[in-house]
Amino acid sequence: MTLEISHLTTQFGSVTAVDDISFTAKASEITTVIGANGAGKSSLLRTISGLEKPSSGSIKWNGRELIGLKPEAIVRLGVAHVPEGHAVISELTVAENIAMGGLFRRRKNRADLESASKEVYELFPRLEERRKQLAGTLSGGERQMLAIARALVARPQLILLDEPSLGLAPLVVEQIIATVNDLCRKTGLSVLLVEQNAITALGVADQGVLLSLGKVVADRPAKELRADATLRAAYLGY
């Protein structure tokens, strides 16, 4: 279950957000895409999940081309996207948000869907306590947990996480990242983690892809990237 991206380019008008990007996210590993604001990280994820149409290149998931498929078809193939900004539906309850994530599986495999939502609540007990509350009343961290739970209930093989740390307290970030890491190590879930917070992301990732202005600057084991003082200074500023 690998995701192979080759020569992917996505343009918005005259702006090239994703510029000839190629890399591979291996199965059951955490691949992190890091880079400064505006490096094209979110556009990359939005292109993979079908929200944006690329102008050229290919995205192969298990050998299958994803380009041209609608977002609702791509998630059905096991690629779940948790977009930036704790994307939940504030006007729906916590339980409804989670149920929404599994809607498309409700006819095919009801029993498994029920166990999937049970597992999700076990993973995030805070959400269990707040089942009946509107998602809009949750704290930022809880909303991020809900957004991840919404994606997990579809039992994806690959989860695309867009800046889960955005606007959250360091302790909450640590907890969320640890949960994601656990999921990857225990259940074999592949993770493509986009982060501006490079220290945290490289801390858990297996492979690191460094983007700058839409291009890949480095694609190396996370350990090496962490140790490379030149790259850090030039692109990450720490």
């Binding site: 929200l51 977002p71 977009p83 994606a151």
Partner: peptide, 15 residues
Amino acid sequence: RATALNQEVAKLSGI
């Protein structure tokens, strides 16, 4: 309801 409230999240949920 989900589609009416937030089409993008609804699509990403497979709706």
